[in-house]
């Protein structure tokens, strides 16, 4: 465990941080192709980030430490999550702390930090974005925790490595209705958390329909690069989490470096598949009105609740 464990954690963080912009680039590319365009290439987000990091940092007058700290905290929090979640290996030095509730809370911490930064600017758009973002975040919370509850039932614990290892040992669990419903609920929650269509449009230029973009209108240069990297990493980590919960095969339960490398390759493949599906789905869907978002989230809440209740009265899971 010891050395490989540390390598695994470092590798997870590195893959998420390095791969997240590529994932976004890949999704934009898929979208472009479906829309008949050529696309800017998969590495374009990295080019954007490099350029932004070289640009001049700007502090709008009247903003304080919250504005400066929020991008750092957003990226750092997501990196900590990437280290905790067993994306590639279940036995790591941090696997004792890899609690699903903690993961959800750490991601929420980034949202809160960015919302505070939006309010700190004191502009109308910053406040509007923060208000909308917090509204959605507040409504996502029950769904996501109930889905967490549902996936933790078979393992009897919210410890992620335990859940993943349990599913690897009992493959039939993934096909049980409870697990399927929980994953479906989790997917909707992930869409809302990462601000994708149909909850928010990441490519919007229209201030009145913005949620996430409105909060970050004042960021420039390196700060903006971090904000973008942070949201890309969130998407990557959450998709990785969904992939790990829904199809944990390949995640290294042992300590061999070869297995770890295989697990990382599989992780990239799984997330890429999910990203492709998400990007393709975004071509077909329109963004819903802000006040229809609660309907969507209520639906996913019911799915999560059905997952919990279903695990009582359906016996599907052969392992128990």
């Amino acid at each position: 465990m010891s050395a490989t464990g540390y390598v695994a954690v470092a590798a997870q963080v590195a893959v998420v941080a390095g791969g997240a912009p590529l994932l976004t680039g890949w999704m934009r590319q898929v979208r472009a192709r479906l829309e008949g365009r050529a696309g800017a290439g998969v590495v374009q987000p990295w080019r954007d980030a490099r350029k932004l990091l070289r640009k001049e940092p700007v502090s709008p007058t009247g903003t304080g430490p919250a504005f400066r700290l929020a991008p750092l905290l957003l990226v750092a929090g997501t990196a900590v999550v990437a280290a905790l979640v067993p994306l590639a290996a279940t036995r790591t030095p941090v696997s004792g702390s890899a609690d699903l509730i903690l993961v959800v809370a750490l991601l929420a911490l980034g949202t809160v930090a960015l919302a505070l930064a939006g309010l700190d600017t004191g502009t109308a758009f910053g406040g509007m974005g923060a208000s909308r973002e917090m509204t959605i975040a507040a409504l996502v919370e029950p769904t996501i925790l109930l889905a967490v509850f549902a996936v933790s039932i078979p393992a009897g614990s919210t410890n992620l490595p335990a859940i993943v290892a349990g599913t690897i040992d009992h493959p039939a669990r993934t096909a049980s209705p409870a697990e399927l419903l929980a994953v479906a609920a989790l997917v909707v929650a992930v869409l809302a958390e990462t601000g994708r269509i149909p909850v928010d449009n990441p490519a919007t230029h229209l201030e009145l329909t913005m949620v996430h973009e409105a909060m970050v209108l004042e960021y420039a240069g390196p700060d903006l690069a971090l904000v973008e990297l942070g949201s890309q990493m969130r998407l990557a980590v959450l998709l990785g989490l969904v992939a790990t919960l829904a199809a944990p095969w390949g995640v290294a339960t042992g300590g061999s470096p070869a297995l770890l490398a295989l697990a990382l390759a599989l992780l990239v493949a799984k997330v890429a598949v999910l990203g492709t599906a998400l990007a393709a789905a975004e071509v077909f869907r329109a963004k819903v009105r802000l006040f229809k978002v609660p309907e969507l989230l209520a639906g996913s809440f019911v799915l999560a609740l059905l997952a919990v209740v279903g695990s009582y009265f359906l016996t599907g899971e052969a392992g128990r």
């Binding site: 472009a32 800017a40 290439g41 230029h205």
Partner: peptide, 14 residues
């Protein structure tokens, strides 16, 4: 398709 050359429209001069 100007976007293929790495150009993107954004919402804020910042």
């Amino acid at each position: 398709d100007a976007e293929r050359y790495g150009v993107r429209l954004v919402a804020s001069p910042r």
